[in-house]
């Protein structure tokens, strides 16, 4: 169920846009209205989620440390795993965002003969994630050639290096291969790794299926279902969208509308799903806080300012009589008068 339901959802999206975009006149809906709506929902939803997180209090200082924290100056501490200063936190965040450093620590429990239990770091997840995310980034940057006019040299250079193998015409891009590899490995991991399969849900499979469908329709459009894929007309539409004068100047093949519809679906799905880890990684208190609880007091923003700190000394003053009565040891004995009063 959790494997097939999301697949059926993606197939339904494909069929819907395929049939929809073949109806005369509907091209304006699928080529213009849907992308605008999707982009609006993406940006609005993204900001809504981030602002929601920004407004949530962090009651405790909760950085996850995985190394020696700072204690005494002559004890060496781990600057990345238990960062003390802001610059160390920034370095830790940078490595996390850019190199997915915490996936390097993806430990896997294995039982060997003996029985001996080991927790070894399994680097595969890190490798698949790097392959997928960086291919996706390059693909998005490459697509900018369709949105920017004139095309800046950076974008042409990315395209050049991506197509450096010069296989066929239109040239094959390296990232087409690496993103599919990354995606199928990430999907395969969810199917074949028993532990991961057990904890995977429909909403883990859906984005994978959806992105695979986007990549496949893109590849089909570029190499196999080329008829009607007039890049000049497509670029006119894309540039039109970002300059707010969209026009569709030719009959573009349905595969293009399917591709665009799936991308729109991804944009809409993005802010309301686990894909928000793109913004969330920056706002994780477990990553973006310094491990300095012993140097700086973290004030819980929830604290009611009317509730004043109550020290033990004050507490004992308040309850000393009852404490003595109950036989609880006290630091400061009752005064003579108080004990006289208590006697009665």
């Amino acid at each position: 169920m959790k494997y097939t339901f999301p697949l059926a959802a993606v197939v339904a999206l494909v069929l819907f846009s395929w049939v929809g975009a073949s109806i005369p006149g509907m091209q304006y809906i699928f080529g213009i209205v849907v992308p605008y709506l999707a982009m609006g929902l993406f940006l609005g939803g993204f900001c809504y989620r981030v602002i929601g997180w920004a407004r949530s209090p962090v009651p405790f200082k909760i950085p996850t440390t995985c190394g020696q924290g700072f204690s005494l100056p002559w004890i060496k501490y781990d600057k990345l795993e238990a960062p003390l200063t802001t610059s160390q936190v920034i370095a830790r965040m940078f490595l996390e965002v850019v190199l997915f450093r915490s996936l390097w620590r993806n430990t896997k429990a294995t039982v060997y003969k003996g029985p001996k239990l080991t927790y070894e770091s399994s680097k595969w997840l890190w490798l698949f994630a790097m392959l997928f995310h960086y291919s996706f980034l390059v693909i998005i940057l490459r697509h900018m050639r369709l949105f920017l006019n004139p095309v800046p040299a950076v974008i042409s250079n990315i395209e050049f290096f991506d197509g450096i193998l010069q296989i066929g015409a239109p040239t094959m891009y390296l990232t087409e291969v690496t993103i599919l590899l990354g995606l199928f490995l990430l999907l395969g991991r969810r199917f074949f790794n028993r532990h991961v399969r057990y904890i995977s849900l429909a909403n883990d499979f859906f984005p994978l299926y959806l992105i695979i469908a986007i990549v496949l329709t893109g590849i089909l459009m570029r190499f196999f279902l080329r008829s009607g894929v007039d890049i000049i007309a497509i670029k006119r539409l894309a540039v039109g969208l970002v300059t707010f004068h969209p026009t569709i100047i030719a009959d573009i093949g349905s595969i293009f509308y399917i591709h665009v519809f799936l991308v729109s679906a991804l944009l809409v799905y993005f802010p309301f799903s686990k894909l928000m880890h793109m913004g969330g990684v920056f706002l994780s208190p477990t990553r973006n806080m310094a491990n300095d609880t012993r140097m700086r007091r973290h004030i819980n923003p929830w604290n009611d300012p009317n509730i004043k700190p109550h020290s033990y000394a004050a507490y004992e003053d308040e309850f000393r009589k009852d404490m003595v009565e109950q036989g609880i040891p006290v630091e400061k004995p009752l005064t003579a008068e108080e004990s006289a009063a208590a006697e009665e």
């Binding site: 940006l43 900001c47 949105f147 006019n149 000049i232 006119r236 540039v239 970002v242 300059t243 004068h245």
Partner: peptide
């Protein structure tokens, strides 16, 4: 982030250029 995502809008500044 929003400026980055909407970069094509600022870059073209409403001018789609000629086909």
């Amino acid at each position: 982030f929003v400026l980055f995502i909407t970069f094509p809008v600022w870059y073209n500044r409403g001018n789609a250029g000629a086909v």
